[in-house]
């Protein structure tokens, strides 16, 4: 029963959306959308489990002075402060969560705007530097294929900036937009997408039929 029940639930949870895709009858649609709502509820409880895990792990690390324990202090402090102002704001203390009616920030809003968002932006902006270092490594003409890649990349990069357009009198943008991007680039992308879609469908079928069970942690195959 311990093995059969999850498989049966997986079978039902997998087939109902497929059935609803073809059958527009409102009861079928209702069951399918209800399943989606259940997923949100389950995810909400799982998030609680995650928060408990974060607190436990980091508290233990601080207690035993594990490596990088000061980071754990910062993390727990951040969690505690944001959590406090978030919860108290939800009960309309400190003016709520969002901006106040007079345009001033509530503590939660202030922390979000001036603490969280800049940190997030900083992480994202690192991408520009990483793209530069990755491009430097990728575009080295080590063999014929790498040289083709280098030439194509140079054309595409120049074709997308005004300097390239000015230099080539519109030829490079045309080559990029009309030939390279919709031609070989799109063909390769679609090839990968078709293969991945079939792979995903095959895996879904294996999961629905209970052939693939490794994700349940109950052994592989039959």
């Amino acid at each position: 029963m311990k093995r059969q029940l999850p498989l049966l639930l997986t079978f039902l949870a997998g087939t109902i959306p497929i059935f609803a895709f073809f059958v527009p009858e409102r009861h079928v649609t209702l069951v399918s959308t209800t399943l989606d709502s259940w997923l949100i509820i389950v995810a909400g409880f799982a998030l609680l489990l995650g928060v408990v895990n974060v607190v436990q792990m980091n508290a233990n690390k601080i207690a035993r002075r594990g490596s990088g324990w000061p980071y754990a202090v910062v993390l727990l402090a951040g969690l505690g402060i944001m959590g406090f102002f978030g919860f108290s704001g939800a009960f309309n203390m400190f003016g709520g969560i969002a901006t106040r009616s007079d345009g001033t920030s509530t503590p939660f809003d202030w922390l979000y705007k001036f603490g969280f968002l800049p940190l997030q932006g900083t992480m994202f902006s690192l991408l520009a530097f990483f793209i530069a270092s990755a491009s430097y490594r990728a575009f080295r003409a080590r063999n014929v294929e790498a040289t083709i890649l280098l030439v194509a990349a140079l054309i595409v990069m120049l074709g997308r900036i005004p300097f390239g357009e000015m230099m080539s009198r519109g030829f490079l943008p045309w080559l990029t937009e009309q030939i390279i991007m919709p031609g070989p680039n799109m063909a390769a992308q679609r090839g990968i997408m078709i293969g991945a879609a079939l792979g995903a469908a095959s895996m879904a079928l294996r999961i629905i039929l209970g052939i693939e069970r490794s994700y349940l942690g109950i052994g592989k195959g039959e």
Binding site: A196, G199, A200, M203, R206, E212, E222
Partner: peptide
Amino acid sequence: LIGEELYAASAYLSREPVLLGSI
């Protein structure tokens, strides 16, 4: 692992004939 290779991984690693059949 590009696209479909990712989905084929469990069959490839386990070498289960039934899983390989689906591929």
